[in-house]
Simulated scan of single mutants.
Amino acid sequence: MKASWDIFCTVVDNYGDIGVTWRLARQLVAEHGLAVRLWVDDLNAFVPLCPAADANAEQQWHEGVDVRHWPAAWSATSPAEVVIGAFACQLPPAYIEAMSAQATPPLWLNLEYLSAEDWVEGCHGLPSPQPNGLRKVFFFPGFTARTGGLLREASVLASRDSLQSAPKQRAEFLAGLGVQVAPGSRLLSLFAYENRQLGSWLQALAAGTQATHLLVPQGRILADLAAWLEVATLAPGALHQRGALTVQVVPFVSQGDYDKLLWACDFNAVRGEDSFVRAQWAAVPMLWHIYVQDENAHWEKLEAFLALYRQGLSDPASVALTALWRAWNIDGDMGQAWQALQPHWDELQTHAREWAVAQAAQPDLATALVHFCRNSL
């Protein structure tokens, strides 16, 4: 029989939590032959990532994953052999009671948020005994060999290379989204939270000498974009020209198509955790809009990643990249930071690919989880 896993996801940040757990569940089924139930408390956030899904179904199957609605009134359910609470979500009390009643209690993992902070290595894999006798283990994704790695399907890098090395394939994919890029234009994508610095960046793009085509998937940044364009609303298909800048709104797409969108672009601005990791596999320059946390704890996470990511860059390129990321996240002058980045574009392109190669040399998160669980069980 297949080993059984339960993954619990509480939707907090629109698509970040469900984005990570949906990718993980699919990979555990497809590449490791496991029986996976994905419990989601808000299926409305799941449907945009999996268009075939039904937001009202209590149970449904997609790509081999048993997707369940996580109801407020929990009913009796037999626990799986491995139980994952994603991002410190609280499991149903009745489910925890059922876990403790098992002759052989399940392996209970708390899948933590991604961080490059130094303390993560020391906490990865640490047990946390519970008052009821169960043991919960902290499992940290990360960027070093002493963490759990990053989500990376076995085929993702080859698929990326196939699209990036075939201009016709790239153009056909973009055409499917209604996108036609003028020869010589640089293609950018923008997926971000609300940001007061958007206007200064867009103005720099519009006033620049480099023709730029900016693709903006549906999301929270659209209100700021509409304000800068001085239009009431923006919907998929909207196309606006301002100087050297063409802005186009594209539909929210499935995870597979979003990966392709990132691969097709020359630069990607992303947010949160899921799109942040996928932008790294795209192996092109990127900009991360980190999720804001209480007491500005996110700044430490931002700086910790930058300290890792900029290793190997020349000092001028490192300074320019750091200034851009800080401007985007801490209300700096994005226009000035963007202009200062341009002389280092070729170096940043090379560096992005080298970073992806280095990260791909480590075990991926799903494989690391499976090996950890097999050794523990």
Rank of each mutant, 00 (worst) to 15 (best):
Q164R: 07
S165D: 07
S165K: 08
S165H: 06
S165C: 06
A166S: 07
K168F: 10
Q169H: 12
Q169T: 12
R170V: 06
A171C: 14
E172Q: 10
E172V: 10
L174M: 13
L174A: 12
A175F: 11
G176E: 12
G176C: 13
G176T: 15
L177N: 06
G178T: 11
G178A: 07
Q180P: 10
Q180T: 12
V181S: 07
A182V: 10
P183R: 15
P183S: 10
G184F: 14
G184N: 12
S185K: 10
R186E: 10
L187N: 09
L187P: 05
S189V: 14
S189K: 13
F191Q: 13
E194F: 03
E194S: 06
E194R: 05
N195Q: 12
N195H: 10
N195Y: 06
G199W: 06
S200V: 01
S200W: 05
L202C: 03
Q203E: 11
Q203N: 15
Q203R: 14
A204W: 01
L205H: 02
A207I: 08
G208H: 03
T212M: 01
H213K: 04
H213S: 04
H213Y: 04
H213V: 01
H213C: 04
L214N: 02
L215P: 02
L215I: 05
L215W: 03
V216N: 00
V216D: 00
P217F: 04
P217H: 03
Q218H: 00
Q218M: 03
G219W: 00
R220G: 02
L222Q: 00
A223W: 00
L225F: 00
L225H: 02
A227K: 09
W228R: 02
W228F: 09
V231C: 08
V231F: 08
L234P: 05
A235K: 14
A235E: 15
G237M: 11
A238F: 15
H240M: 08
H240K: 08
H240Y: 11
Q241C: 08
